[in-house]
Lab assay of single mutants.
Amino acid sequence: SADYSSLTVVQLKDLLTKRNLSVGGLKNEWVQRLIKDDEES
């Protein structure tokens, strides 16, 4: 899986927004959300 934890907050928020995922919570929660989205898609 991609190394989301190395991305900036701005990059992570951009990815979350593009995938229609929530940008609520902490940075590590966003990373988990993106990883989960990868596994489900």
Results as ranks from 00 to 15, higher is better:
S1P: 13
S1L: 14
S1V: 13
S1F: 13
S1K: 14
S1D: 11
S1W: 12
A2H: 13
A2I: 15
A2C: 14
A2P: 14
D3W: 10
D3V: 06
D3G: 06
D3K: 09
D3F: 10
D3A: 06
D3P: 07
D3M: 07
Y4Q: 02
Y4M: 04
Y4N: 03
Y4D: 04
S5N: 14
S5V: 09
S5A: 14
S5K: 10
S5H: 14
S6M: 09
S6I: 08
S6D: 12
S6P: 00
S6T: 10
L7D: 04
L7W: 02
L7N: 04
L7P: 02
L7F: 05
L7Q: 07
L7R: 01
L7E: 04
T8M: 02
T8C: 08
T8W: 00
T8E: 07
T8L: 03
T8A: 05
T8G: 08
V9C: 14
V9H: 11
V9P: 13
V9E: 15
V9S: 14
V9M: 13
V9W: 04
V10H: 12
V10S: 15
V10N: 14
V10K: 12
V10E: 15
V10C: 14
V10D: 15
V10A: 15
Q11N: 03
Q11Y: 01
Q11P: 01
Q11H: 04
Q11G: 04
Q11W: 00
Q11K: 04
L12H: 00
L12P: 01
L12R: 00
L12W: 00
L12T: 01
L12K: 01
K13I: 15
K13V: 13
K13F: 08
K13G: 05
K13D: 04
K13P: 01
K13R: 12
D14K: 08
D14F: 01
D14I: 08
D14G: 05
D14M: 05
D14L: 05
D14S: 06
D14A: 09
L15D: 02
L15K: 03
L15W: 02
L15N: 01
L15Y: 04
L15E: 11
L16I: 06
L16T: 04
L16E: 03
L16G: 01
L16V: 03
L16Y: 00
T17S: 10
T17D: 09
T17V: 14
T17F: 06
K18R: 10
K18D: 10
K18Q: 11
K18P: 00
R19W: 00
R19I: 04
R19Q: 05
R19F: 01
R19M: 04
R19P: 04
R19S: 04
R19V: 04
R19G: 06
R19H: 05
N20H: 11
N20F: 05
N20A: 07
N20Y: 03
N20R: 09
L21P: 02
L21F: 00
L21G: 02
L21Q: 01
L21E: 04
L21K: 02
L21W: 00
L21S: 03
L21H: 02
S22F: 02
S22P: 14
S22G: 11
S22V: 07
S22N: 09
S22C: 08
S22H: 09
S22W: 02
S22I: 06
V23C: 10
V23G: 07
V23E: 08
V23D: 10
G24E: 15
G24M: 10
G24D: 15
G24R: 08
G24P: 04
G24K: 13
G25V: 00
G25L: 00
G25E: 03
G25Q: 02
G25H: 01
L26Y: 10
L26P: 11
L26S: 15
L26G: 15
L26N: 15
L26M: 12
L26K: 13
K27H: 08
K27I: 11
K27P: 15
N28Q: 10
N28V: 09
N28M: 08
N28W: 14
N28S: 10
N28F: 11
N28L: 09
E29W: 00
E29Y: 00
E29P: 00
E29D: 15
E29N: 06
E29T: 01
E29Q: 07
W30S: 04
W30T: 04
W30G: 04
W30K: 06
W30I: 10
W30Y: 07
W30Q: 10
W30V: 05
W30E: 07
V31K: 00
V31T: 02
V31S: 00
V31P: 03
V31F: 05
Q32L: 08
Q32N: 11
Q32D: 13
Q32C: 12
Q32T: 11
Q32A: 14
R33Y: 00
R33M: 08
R33T: 07
R33S: 06
R33G: 05
R33I: 07
R33C: 07
L34T: 02
L34D: 03
L34C: 07
L34V: 02
L34W: 00
I35S: 06
I35C: 08
K36R: 12
K36G: 07
K36I: 09
K36N: 11
K36M: 12
K36H: 10
K36Y: 08
D37S: 12
D37Y: 15
D37P: 01
D37L: 06
D37R: 04
D37T: 04
D38I: 07
D38V: 05
D38S: 04
D38Q: 04
D38H: 05
D38Y: 05
D38N: 03
E39D: 09
E39G: 08
E39Y: 12
E39W: 12
E39H: 11
E39S: 09
E39C: 09
E39V: 10
E40D: 13
E40R: 13
E40I: 12
E40Y: 10
E40W: 10
E40H: 10
E40T: 12
S41H: 14
S41C: 10
S41K: 15
S41L: 13
S41T: 11
